[in-house]
Amino acid sequence: MTAGGSPLLEQLVGDFEAECADLDARVSPLDTGAWGTPTPATGWDIRDTINHLAFFDADALLAVTDPDAFSALVQRVTVAGNDYVEQRTLEGRSFDPAQVLGRWRTGRVALAAALRGMDPGARVPWFGPPMSPASFVTARLMEVWAHGQDVVDALGQQRPATSRLRAVADLGYRTRAFSYAVRGAVMPEAPVRLELAGPEGQTWTWGPPDAADVISGPALDFCLLVTQRRHRDDLALTVRGAAAQEWAAIAQAFAGPPGAGREPLS
């Protein structure tokens, strides 16, 4: 690890911290009973959600600070062949909400500090392909935002969109090929143009301007699509072209097996 970081990495780590702080402010006032509120993620309550973030932050810190030890962890998980996420979820239920919250707070602070000191050109191992530090922290930011949406929905709250969504949308666009690969399929060669309206009037675009396939609409809605927090029918996205339609049906920005997605709200 080399000290120094980069302006981009610093910005992304700051966005990660801000997203964590927003979610922390929502769960910290909850009484013990409210931590048991079911979320839209089947079988998970709010405590499970925060525990999930805490234990993956711990794994992320290991990947950043001791790549060899993390690779050994991945090998053990692979050999065991059990559901690692389910195992850690069950472990987390032995902790009371205050302990879960404390572990999440301590772990994310340590992770942010470690990420800030990384060489921007380094590669960080993960459960999927290795990533640059910038991509790695973006993935953690996406996880906090997506699971934060589960908590927001569980509590019946509203959460305003922020400019931090640009990083989530960027990850969503860059994981188009992964959305196919995780399903054992090959991404079509046809490029897809992404045209999003940011929450403060910005226009964010990816892909060639002359692409025949286009997805356009609010950045929030695209982020909800690629994190599978809303069904396509509940989003104000315009999808034009066969390749864009196909991708929109399977878009997945998070690691792991193909997600089941969510049922339409109405």
Results as ranks from 00 to 15, higher is better:
residue 211 A to M: 04
residue 57 D to I: 05
residue 165 L to D: 04
residue 156 G to W: 08
residue 195 E to K: 13
residue 160 P to M: 08
residue 225 L to K: 00
residue 70 F to I: 11
residue 257 P to M: 15
residue 227 T to S: 15
residue 101 L to D: 06
residue 41 A to R: 05
residue 245 Q to K: 11
residue 62 L to D: 04
residue 183 R to L: 12
residue 236 A to M: 15
residue 117 G to S: 10
residue 90 L to R: 09
residue 146 A to Q: 02
residue 151 V to K: 13
residue 44 W to G: 06
residue 125 P to F: 07
residue 126 W to L: 07
residue 90 L to N: 03
residue 44 W to R: 03
residue 187 M to I: 11
residue 112 A to M: 05
residue 210 D to V: 12
residue 121 G to I: 00
residue 137 V to K: 04
residue 93 R to W: 07
residue 121 G to N: 07
residue 146 A to E: 01
residue 68 D to F: 00
residue 188 P to G: 09
residue 106 T to N: 10
residue 95 F to D: 08
residue 204 W to Q: 07
residue 168 V to R: 03
residue 3 A to R: 14
residue 20 C to M: 09
residue 223 C to M: 00
residue 218 P to W: 03
residue 126 W to N: 14
residue 29 P to L: 09
residue 171 L to I: 15
residue 123 R to I: 04
residue 188 P to K: 11
residue 175 T to Q: 02
residue 114 A to L: 13
residue 148 G to D: 11
residue 60 A to R: 09
residue 39 T to D: 00
residue 45 D to T: 00
residue 111 L to G: 09
residue 59 D to P: 01
residue 149 Q to H: 12
residue 112 A to Y: 03
residue 79 V to H: 11
residue 187 M to A: 15
residue 67 P to W: 05
residue 242 A to T: 06
residue 161 A to K: 12
residue 52 H to E: 00
residue 7 P to S: 06
residue 142 M to F: 10
